[in-house]
Amino acid sequence: MVDYIVEYDYDAVHDDELTIRVGEIIRNVKKLQEEGWLEGELNGRRGMFPDNFVKEIKR
């Protein structure tokens, strides 16, 4: 799994989504079957977030 950095703020709409803020690092990200969404861990919580608000961290 890979990590992503947040490029744009996003406020969660549903309980299974993450609220993300610019500059945060989302860890252990995986792609979901639902197009346009990823799932990852942030601040001890796992949830979904839109893939166009983040950028993969290349290592």
Rank of each mutant, 00 (worst) to 15 (best):
K30Q: 06
R27Y: 07
I20G: 01
M48P: 04
K58E: 13
V13N: 09
V6G: 05
E39Y: 09
R21A: 01
E39L: 05
I20P: 02
I26K: 00
W37K: 04
E39R: 04
D15F: 06
M48F: 09
E56Q: 08
Y10I: 01
E41M: 06
N28M: 01
G23K: 05
D11G: 04
L32G: 13
Y8W: 10
E39K: 07
I25T: 12
V2Y: 09
V13T: 07
E41Y: 04
L38I: 05
V2P: 09
E41N: 06
T19F: 01
H14G: 13
R59P: 15
M1E: 07
D16L: 10
E41A: 05
W37Q: 06
R46V: 09
E24M: 05
E35G: 12
E24W: 02
L18Y: 01
K55W: 02
H14F: 09
F53P: 08
K58C: 11
G36V: 02
K55G: 08
E41T: 08
V29M: 01
L38F: 11
K55L: 06
I26W: 02
G23Y: 04
V54C: 09
I26R: 01
E7A: 10
D9C: 03
V13S: 15
M48H: 07
V6T: 06
N43M: 05
D11Y: 08
V6R: 01
L32P: 10
H14L: 08
N28I: 00
R27D: 01
V22S: 11
V13E: 12
L38Q: 05
Y10H: 07
E41F: 13
D51P: 11
E39A: 10
E39G: 03
E39Q: 08
Y4M: 11
M48V: 12
Y4D: 01
P50I: 01
D3W: 06
E39F: 05
M48K: 15
M48W: 10
K55P: 04
T19R: 03
E24H: 04
D51G: 12
L32Y: 08
L32I: 08
L32F: 14
G36P: 10
K31N: 06
N43A: 09
Y8F: 15
R45Y: 06
R59A: 06
T19V: 03
T19P: 02
M48N: 14
G23M: 00
I57C: 08
E56G: 09
R59F: 09
N43C: 05
W37H: 04
D16S: 13
F53L: 15
Q33K: 12
V6Y: 04
K31I: 15
F49C: 04
I5A: 04
N52V: 15
D16K: 11
I26S: 02
G44R: 10
R59S: 14
R27H: 15
V22N: 03
R45P: 00
E17L: 01
K55E: 04
F53A: 14
E39S: 12
K58Q: 15
E34Y: 11
L32H: 13
G36Q: 04
E17M: 04
V2I: 14
V54N: 05
D3A: 08
R27A: 08
I20W: 02
R45M: 07
K55H: 07
V54F: 02
G40C: 02
G40Q: 00
V22L: 05
V2K: 15
I26L: 11
E34W: 12
G36M: 05
V6F: 04
E35W: 05
E24N: 05
R21L: 06
I25W: 04
M1F: 10
I25M: 07
P50N: 07
R45H: 15
Q33P: 14
W37A: 01
I25R: 11
M1N: 05
D15H: 11
E7T: 14
D51E: 14
D15M: 06
M48S: 14
